[in-house]
Design a protein around this nucleic acid. Structure first.
Lengths: 200, 200, 200, 200
DNA sequence: GATGAATGAGGTTTCATTCAT
DNA sequence: AATGAATGAAACCTCATTCAT
């Protein structure tokens, strides 16, 4: 009966995941070595295998973690927002800015897709993306019903555009680092979602 | 002296680039082997080195080629369009649909970014992206000046949003294959760029 | 001081040896991990090192244990047999059938020899084999003196053949599992050891 | 079109197999490194993978090679022998002495079996062994029909004993090196196969 | 006395790149 | 100019062994 039990294990696991996140984000999955991750996490390469079965699973786990945070952001902001439109803007901004996701985290998703050749992973990933688009569409529909979002465009299409926008912005940010225009772009998109003022 | 040679060299170079494009797109840069590219191009692994100094430079060249095509699309559609707004829509759609870009080509950009760790490449890449955003911004400004694009939002911001949207859509398409909503999303974005109808 | 301890130590030692025997037999020395042995023995990997200096020595000890049982079989059956010839048959059959040796135990020897590269072990092993052949030869010689074993063939040679026969049968059994022909082969060999009936 | 084609490839393949045979025999499969084999064969470790997909397949190939030689010995000696009994003796002796098999080759078989855990290999192996026993049994039956082999014992059982004897002798030889008694043991076995002289 | 987390050496395998032919 | 065999540098992963708790 060791006393380092769960607490220690969780700490290690988290440290490895964080290290992997950073490394994968910075250099890409393939170019990141287990040794680098290990060093970043403060242990030896072999030790990682006590916490993760292999490099691929480590990647998967890091990704799942990120996805989880994503969902949480979604839920939190939906709840905190005054209106669906507001929620969309908040989610977009937080997706970009929050430490949770970070420029790197985006990269991660990027990298994950990079695990092409692994059909299971791709499918898994695709399902997740669909879920996000679906949730967003529901939000848009709410907004349209409530009158805060223009009704002349299809909710599903707008949702897809919104998700793509965020995805693209994170991708650009990856290359250019923190970019002031990012949030502005989100706000602009939100602005464009508003219905035109009644003519009268 | 090298009369036939030049012709031959160009043919070979092109074949290699095309093969590399397809391979990089399909499996990613790291996971693509020189042997695969060679086979696809119809020559031996060693022969590639007569045309390109190494794998990294081959990637670079393939990328530049793709960017060139991109610019051409930009120019062509700008010229053919009735208005800047129209141009933006056309560019977006063609960026998504045309064989030029294709799922693979997008992938390529994907991969290229993957050449992180190579600072020179990243910077190069960043410059290119800025150029695209810049051109787009110019187009938007034109549209605003001409009244086809709403003036209440900053041109640079809208341009960034537009580029990000395309980027994101291509990324999503990568995962889900040809997606009917893609073009609709572009059209929706264009629609939202229009100024609200005068109150009258 | 170490009253209970000794008992405990012996129990642990035996458990580890048994676990190692089974594991080595089943997967081979090299492919067996200390962790597997530990789990089978009901303790942790590290604990084994309190009872054995290392994996190699554990193997050695397991082997010696098996050899000891072998000698015991030899002695017991020699004593119980009506004649040297009878003793040979009994030893052969028991070497094959008894739980002591069992398919696994044979395997063990197999594995042990596998510790080639370790000269000390090989020599040790060779000495043991010579001892067995020697004892068998003595038995044969007894039989020849008593007239139950044919005298036209050299005792040492017959002994070698007998030992080899058993060795080979155990090896074959390893691959095919319990084989009905095994014992029959031993009996046939014994039969052939008998002198031809006097011409009269 | 290289000119080193088939000839060179065959030479290399053979060299690697021979090197592997020796190494596997000497140190066992698990303890033999690809680097050792490569050095023995006169190339680099990586180069082996141009000729064999992996270590396991190399082992398999070496084994198959040895089995092939075995069958050839069987056929040759059967043809050259004056009688089935004579054939058995010749096969036994050649199995022991000839360079074809060699102490090492036996070891090989040994090692191969050592590839436990690979069910396919074990079964394959078992089938081969059965074939050998079967062929031997046929030979014995012939001898019994012709009167050169005693008829009071079952042919299948005698065949099993014979094969086991050789197997065991080769195993012992492995430990003790060239052993003068080996051949004598084979001859003794053959002698014992003879029918007792007619009473007259 | 026991645990099991950690290390570190070493093994197999992959590939970009070179170079004799 | 082209081939493709060969090299050699990693990379991932496994484990015997140690040691703080």
């Amino acid at each position: 009966m060791t006393k380092v039990t769960q607490e220690h294990i969780d700490a290690r696991t988290g440290a490895i995941q964080r290290a992997a996140l950073v490394a994968f984000a910075r250099k890409g999955y393939e170019r990141t070595t287990m040794a680098e991750i290990a060093e970043e996490a403060g242990l030896s390469a072999g030790a990682i295998y006590r916490y993760f079965p292999g490099k691929a699973q480590l990647l998967q786990s890091v990704f799942d973690e990120a996805v989880g945070r994503n969902s949480q952001v979604f839920a939190e902001e939906s709840a905190a927002a005054a209106s669906p439109l507001d929620a969309l803007g908040r989610i977009g901004v937080r997706s970009l800015d929050e430490a949770t996701i970070d420029a790197e985290c985006m990269e991660l998703e990027f990298v994950l897709t990079g695990v092409r050749g692994n059909e299971a992973t791709r499918d898994h990933h695709s399902v997740l993306r669909n879920a996000i688009v679906g949730s967003t569409a529901a939000l848009v529909r709410d907004g349209q019903a409530g009158g805060t979002i223009r009704r002349d465009l299809d909710a599903g299409v707008l949702a897809l555009a919104g998700v793509a926008l965020i995805l693209g912005l994170r991708m650009i940010r990856l290359e250019r680092g923190e970019e002031p225009g990012d949030e502005a772009a989100v706000h602009a998109f939100v602005e464009m979602l508003k219905p035109c003022p009644p003519a009268s």
